[in-house]
């Protein structure tokens, strides 16, 4: 699903965020991307929606090259990658329903189909009854659920989450993590960049650890350990 071939990212200010990274993540995997702040996690994840383009190397997402991709094809890549941000990135002037529906409207689905799917997904993330609320009326955990609903409503083969529980309390984090686990069980690939030591240790999934832009550990059913 995701393939990195000798990927290096050097920013204009000289910072090297990723150094010669090569890694492959198969369809249906659940992978934690761990590492200290500045280790290159965000660069890694944001490259998957081509918000950041590598300086060298090649990235394939679902068999498609990010490097050779034309600008007008980027939206279609992004529809295949459900991206979840630490700060949710919801549209503040839209209700919960409208925020989730938006991901389907851009694909051109009929209003009837949209209603059906959105209602189902909102139920799945446990937000039934909040359809007409606006993001500011919700708690952090609830907003993150909306973001997840929006990311999965389109049935993308890949879910990428950048610190999805970074702003949440442990209990809420656990709830959110359960949702991700269910999504993964239906066959969706999940890649999650996180600092959440407890969660990583509890879930026992594949762990890729970055340090100063390099992969220093790639372990099946790994833990967080002292990811520096």
């Amino acid at each position: 699903m995701i393939q990195f071939f000798n990927v290096t990212k050097k920013y204009e200010n000289g910072n090297i965020a990723l150094k010669d990274v090569s890694v492959a993540i198969k369809k249906g995997e659940f992978v934690f991307l761990v590492g200290a702040s500045g280790a290159g996690k965000s660069t890694f994840t944001h490259m998957l929606i081509r918000e950041i383009v590598p300086s060298q190397g090649q990235i394939l997402v679902d068999g498609q090259s990010i490097i050779r991709m034309k600008n007008r094809h980027v939206p279609f890549l992004r529809r295949k990658v459900g991206f979840i941000f630490q700060d949710y990135q919801l549209l503040q002037d839209r209700t919960v329903f409208e925020n989730v529906a938006f991901a389907l409207e851009i694909v051109g689905l009929s209003p009837q189909d949209i209603r059906k799917k959105v209602t189902m997904v909102i139920d799945l993330v446990g937000l039934t009854g909040h359809e007409k609320s606006y993001p500011e009326q919700l708690s952090g955990g609830e907003q993150q659920r909306v973001a997840i609903a929006r990311a999965i409503v389109n049935n993308p083969p890949l879910i990428v989450a950048d610190e999805p529980t970074g702003n949440l309390d442990p209990e809420t984090s656990l709830e959110i993590m359960k949702i991700f686990n269910s999504i993964n069980k239906w066959g969706t690939t999940v890649l999650m960049a996180t600092h959440d030591k407890e969660m990583v240790n509890r879930m026992r999934k594949r762990v890729i650890q970055l340090s100063f832009g390099e992969i220093i550990r790639d372990e099946e059913k790994g833990g967080y350990y002292n990811a520096q």
Partner: peptide, 16 residues
């Protein structure tokens, strides 16, 4: 601008 940014991340085309 934020709204436009979010729309882009979700996969909206420019003309949309």
């Amino acid at each position: 601008a934020h709204e436009i940014r979010v729309m882009k991340f979700i996969g909206a085309t420019n003309w949309y």
